[in-house]
Amino acid sequence: MSITRRELLKLAGATGVMSLAPAIVRAQKLEKADVQIAVGGKALIYYLPLTIAEQKGFFKDEGLDLRIADFAGGSKALQAVVGGSADVVSGAFEHTLHMQSKGQFYRAFVQQGRAPMIGVGVSKKTMPNYKTPADLKGKKIGVTAPGSSTNMVVSFFLSKHGLKDSDVSFIGVGAGAGAVSALRSGQIDALSNTDPVVSMLTESGDMDIIVDTRTLKDTLEIFGGNMPAGCLYAPQEFIDANPNTVQALTNAIVRADKWIHEVSIEEIAKTVPTQYLLGEPEVYKAALTKSMDGLSPDGMIPEDGAATAIKALAAYVKGFDAAKIDPAKSWTNEYTRRANEK
Rank of each mutant, 00 (worst) to 15 (best):
G279W: 08
I268S: 06
T308K: 08
A307E: 15
K270P: 01
T308R: 05
M300V: 15
T274L: 09
D298G: 08
I265F: 15
A286S: 14
M300S: 13
I310E: 05
S291M: 06
K290Y: 02
I265M: 10
I301G: 01
V272N: 07
E266A: 13
E266I: 02
A287C: 02
P281Y: 06
E267V: 12
M292F: 07
P273M: 10
T308V: 11
L295G: 01
I265H: 12
M300W: 02
P273S: 09
G299H: 06
A269Y: 08
G305T: 11
V272S: 07
G299E: 08
I310C: 05
I268W: 06
A307D: 15
S264C: 13
D257L: 00
L295R: 00
Y276P: 03
A306P: 10
G294E: 03
L288W: 04
P302G: 07
Y276H: 15
S291D: 11
G279D: 05
I268P: 11
M292R: 05
D298H: 11
I268F: 03
E303A: 12
G294I: 10
H261C: 09
K258G: 00
D293F: 05
T289E: 12
Y284L: 12
D257A: 05
K270E: 15
K290L: 13
M292D: 02
S264Y: 13
W259K: 02
P302S: 08
A307M: 15
G279K: 07
Y284C: 06
M292Y: 00
I301S: 03
A269K: 06
Q275K: 11
V272W: 02
E262K: 14
D293K: 04
G279T: 09
S264G: 15
E280H: 13
L288P: 05
I265G: 06
G299W: 05
A309C: 15
